[in-house]
Structure formats: C-alpha cells, structure tokens
Design a binder for these strands. Structure first.
Lengths: 339, 339
DNA sequence: GACGGGCTGTATAACGTTGTAAACTCGTGC
DNA sequence: GCACGAGTTTACAACGTTATACAGCCCGTC
C-alpha cells in the first residue's frame, strides 16, 4: 500500500494534521518541525492522494474538454490552447471526443463523468437547444463555437458571419464572380448556416447573385467530404472561379480534386478555407484561410468556466474571439503569399 | 449542495447502505424496496460522486495518455484508438501532452497527476532509461514506441527497423539508387535511429552505399522541419532520387519544397512517409506511407495497463503491432496508387 | 506573579462512498 | 412452538485528506 499522511505522521512522531500543515505550507509551523516532517516525507516518498484531497475540498482540479473530432487539427490545436490555459490555473484537462454525434454530446453534457470534473468546455455539433434545456447537471458548462442557443451558458465564438464575409470579400476582390460554398450541412449545423449567410450577404453586397447550385452540402467536414462535394459540383457541369470551404480540411480535399482534374489553384479557381491549420501551410499550394485566434478562445473558455466554479451564476456572457484572414497561395493575386 | 446517498436515504426512509445497494445492483434487494429507493433517487436527481467512490475503491477509472504532440495527426489518431479501447473497458482517458520535452516527460512519468489516475500510457521522445529507472511512482506504466529501455515496463511498438527496410526496399524496387533519409535526431531519438538503421541495412542488402550526406537531421518532426531539411539537402547540391522521411509531416514538408523548386514527385524524386495520417491522402500528390496498425496499438496499450492494475507484476512484455506499406502516388511506378 | 494574546501543534469530525459483519425477517421442518 | 437458514437490511468503520476548535506554550504587561 502507498504512503499516507498517517504513515508519515507515525514516522515523524507528530500528528497527521501537522504533516498536512507542512504539505500545505501552513504558516504556523516552526522551521525545525517543518524540516523534521519534510525529512520523513522525503524518506518515505510520500505524495498526496488527490482523490482524497478533492473529496474533502469538493474540487478535483480537472476540467473536461469535449470535442467532436480529435483528428481535425483545428481541434487538436484548440485543445493545446485549452490545456495551456488550464495549466496556467493549475488545472488539468480531461479530453473527450463526441464524434459530433448528438447522442454522445447529450451524454457528455449530462455529465456522465459525474462529479469527477469541476467544469466542462464543449464544442457541440449536433446538440440541440432542447437538449441543453433538459440538462440537469450542475457542473458549469461553457460552449465553444457560435450557436444561437438562448440559454444561460457562457459562449465563446468568433463572428462566423463576419468571418465568412471577409473570406468572400477577399475572393471578390480578386475579381472572382462565381464563388462556391462547400460544407453546408442542411440546417444541422449552425456554424455552417452562419457561414453560408455570410457568403450570401457579401455576394449581395457586391451585387452578385447567390447561386444555390454553388452551395454543396457534406456529411462531415473531413478531407474526403470536401473532395466528394467538389467532385459533385464539377460533375454537375459547374465551373466556379472560387471556392470558400467550411474549413481547411474540406478545402484541402477540394483542392485535391481540382488538382487531379487539371484545374489550377488559384489561376482557375481560388480557394479559401477556415481554421488556419498547420496542414494548410504545407500543401503544394498553400491555403488562404480564416484564422481564428485559438489562444484567445482557449483562454476565454478556461477563464469562463473557472469563474463559475464558486457556484455563483453571473449573467451568461458571449465572448467574441478575434479572427483574421491569413493570405496564401490559393488566392494569390498580384503578389503576397508565403507561410 | 448536491444530493448524496444520505439525502436519498433520508427521503426514502432507509439506510444509506440500502441506497448504495440499489445503486450498485446488489442482488439481495426486494423488488418493492428497489422501486421505492429508485423513486427517491429519481425524485432528488441523485448521481453518485465518483471521487468518493474511487477514494473508497482505490480506483479512479481514469488512465492517462501522455503524447508528445497533439498537433501531429498520428498522435491524434492514436489517441482516438486508445480512447475507444479504454471506453470498451469503462475507462476514461486523461490526455496529456509533453511536447516531447524530457523535463515534462519525467514529470509525467513521475506521476505529477499523483493518485488521480490508475495507469499511464506514454509515448516518450527524449526520456532516458535512467529517468525511468529513477521512477518511484507505482502507477502502472506502459510505453509506446520502440525504445531499447531495459526496464520492467510493458512496451508496445512496431518493428521500426523492419518497417524502414520495407519502405526503402520499395523505393529501391522502383529503381531508385540515391535514397535520402530525413528526420534523424542525432541520437536523441531511438525510433529515428532505428529507422536510419533500417535504411542503412536495406541499402546494404541491395549493394548500395549508405551515404551519410543523405541523412538529414531535424529539430522536430513537423512540416517545417521536413521543409527545412529538404532545402538543406538540395542547397548542398545533392539531388537524391528518393526520400524516406521519419514521418508523414516531415515528408509533406519536404514535398512542399520539392514542388516549390519544380522537382516532380514521384518522377524526379519518390517519397515515402511514416504513420499513414489522413493528411497524406489528400495532397496534390498522395503520399506512400508506412502504416502502423493504430487500433492494435491502442488496444494493446489499454489492455496491458489494465492487466497490471491489480498490482500483480507479470513479466514485462513487448508487444509488436503490425504495419504495412500504403502505396500511393508519391512512389507511383507503373500503375497502382489511389487513396 | 497572574493574565492576556499571539504562536504552534493536536484531536476530532467531517467529505461520500462501499466492505464487513451483524441484525432482523420470514418461511420451513421437526 | 422453536430452531434454522436463506434472504434482506442495517450499523459501523474505513479510504486519505483538511477545517474546526481547542490546548498548550512563551512572552510581555500590569
């Protein structure tokens, strides 16, 4: 069995609480006593049992981060940001993946990790407002990604409509007139809808028609989905001169198809992605992408969830993280580009 | 405050233990009693406190997985495999990232998560044998990735030398004679050394010289490292006809440079990567790669660590997971290829 | 020289759960 | 009518920790 406070106390000939005091840097311990206890601690190799400590304290020091897809580097990079932000507050992150499936998202939001976590940060894909309304769990929850949940939860997002408009404006600025959108999900995803809306608004602002034949829906948001959607557009006889993709993976999948069919990026078709993942910086054609401030998102998420730990319920807030457009070869006009 | 067994017991007018028995499906509970207690549980919305349960039971139901880099899709995909395998045993995975830094790896192996996890699966990069010998923590540890630690820990790996030989043999089979290796780390990484050894052995077996000028060291194993190393080789005036990269990211970074300099893959230079990440299947030129059986690795890792949970210490074992060569365009010979 | 007050250390009781063992409730057999 | 045992429920202790409250001690003060 392992060494507990009791063992150390016996070894040093003091009370359990005194050892605890030394461990916790309680001020009223004489130097001599501190040293004597410390020696026993070192000798026996004592290390505190966090489970017990947290049972007593009511906190575990762990927050969960539920993401739809670890394989998507955007989420991996976001996870790194959250982990770092949590570490700055001495918190550890328990990573979950939901696969973006509603079933699983409900389970997680209902806290099937019951009581082992202090808070939950979740990036939902299919979760519905009603699912959250039904939530009984009292562990603080913070949502990532823009959704119009009208619910008392903090929310960290970037302005998807504005970001999409930035991307489309950039394409139009290159002289493109037929801009396709790849990665809609037929109403099952709010972020996708918002990006489509931004696409539509910006086209309208430029006096261009928003052609629904150029909006391609996908099942998921991986490389293969982008490739399939691009193929579908081309085989329908359409030949847009620009593509705005839901995310970088979709964009890269689409570019793969363009390349395979001999269409040049950006000369024939310019492409803009979303997320600014590292992968987009190393293809044969580097990818222009909307770049959300992942560090800010991670930091805000951790801070929001920790702020609610005390049990206080401040007004639910919506935080907007910044984004910018990282311009690269896939939309190269007269110059610019690079990594 | 939250609902505890005590509250439910009071509400139902029974003892705490009876409620516990109902919760745990203890067989000797009458149907009537079970129903009555269950009603109270539902009414009060009771949910067990895992911290307390685990303090009592000595297990937390959590295993940690320490990986060097979440941003590398190989590790993300591996993590998914581990999470799935753990879920099959009702275990949850706590994900750590060490950044591949020795300092951090030591910390993790020494269990700074002290007592909150039942076991640890770790994929070390810089960790030394001595660091593990100094390990005092008694949480079961399983190592991923091939290292020649002569230590009593289970080990899951693929045969790196054999895998590297397969890759190089494939290149030689295409008629290539000058095969570069990109991604050595000057003795600081055992897997890299083993892959270099495989490269060397296979060249020797084919009667070809192993030219050290064609072995490029890198600082890390990301896209940028591959790009930098490839640039160095070319600027040294070398022009190999094939490249075997430490992993896919390095390979993709190298291909980016080749493309930028107008060298064609595979016509001028064939490329083989390692890990078979999804990203490699969607570049302009799809990437041939050594494909480790990630599901098997995840499953074996979880099973090994759980097997040691009881405190028994069976002989440390070394498990070999399978690998195969996934052939794609970057080594296209006379036919073949595809996704 | 008794008294008050700041400094140290300790005994005890929790936190919420489950294992152990004992106690209670029946129906059955003699 | 009573012992017996199988079935059911309970009291208690324990997991390892920390909060609370208190008991000494030393010191300076009146």
């Amino acid at each position: 069995m392992r060494v507990s406070l009791k063992d150390v106390a016996a070894h040093a000939g003091v009370s359990v609480k005194t050892v605890s005091n030394v461990v916790n840097d309680y001020p009223y311990v004489t130097a001599g006593m501190r040293e004597r206890v410390q020696r026993s601690i070192d000798e026996l190799g004592y290390r505190p049992n966090l489970t017990a400590r947290h049972l007593r304290k009511g906190r575990t020091g762990i927050i969960a981060l539920a993401l739809p897809e670890l394989g998507n580097p955007y989420f991996a990079e976001l996870a790194a940001a959250v982990i770092d932000a949590a570490a700055a507050h001495d918190y550890t992150v328990l990573l979950d993946h939901t696969g973006g499936r509603r079933e699983q998202e409900i389970l997680v939001s209902q806290g099937f990790r019951a009581r082992v976590i202090d808070g939950l940060i979740m990036s939902p894909i299919e979760l519905e407002t009603q699912d959250l309304r039904d939530r009984t769990e009292d562990v603080p929850l913070v949502l990532l990604g823009e959704r119009d949940y009208d619910l008392p939860y903090d929310h960290i997002a970037i302005d998807n409509v504005a970001a999409a408009r930035t991307a489309v404006r950039h394409l139009i600025g290159l002289g493109r007139r037929e801009v396709a959108f790849i990665g809609d999900r037929r109403g099952r995803s709010e972020p996708a809808q918002l990006r489509v809306r931004g696409w539509r608004e910006e086209l309208a602002a430029a006096g261009l028609p928003a052609d629904d034949g150029l909006v391609a829906a996908t099942d998921g948001w991986g490389h293969a989905d982008g490739a399939a959607a691009m193929t579908r557009i081309l085989e329908a006889g359409r030949r847009p001169d620009a593509v705005f993709a839901y995310n970088d993976l979709v964009a890269i999948g689409a570019m793969r198809v363009l390349h395979a069919r001999g269409l040049r990026v950006p000369e024939d078709i310019a492409v803009v992605g979303f997320d600014d993942v590292v992968e987009g910086r190393f293809g044969a054609v580097t990818l222009t992408s909307v770049s959300p401030d992942k560090e800010a998102i991670g930091r805000l998420a951790v801070e929001s969830v920790l702020a609610r730990l005390g049990g206080q319920s401040p007004e639910p807030r919506r935080f907007w993280a910044d984004h910018r457009l990282a311009e690269r070869e896939s939309t190269l006009g007269r110059g610019a580009g690079g990594v």
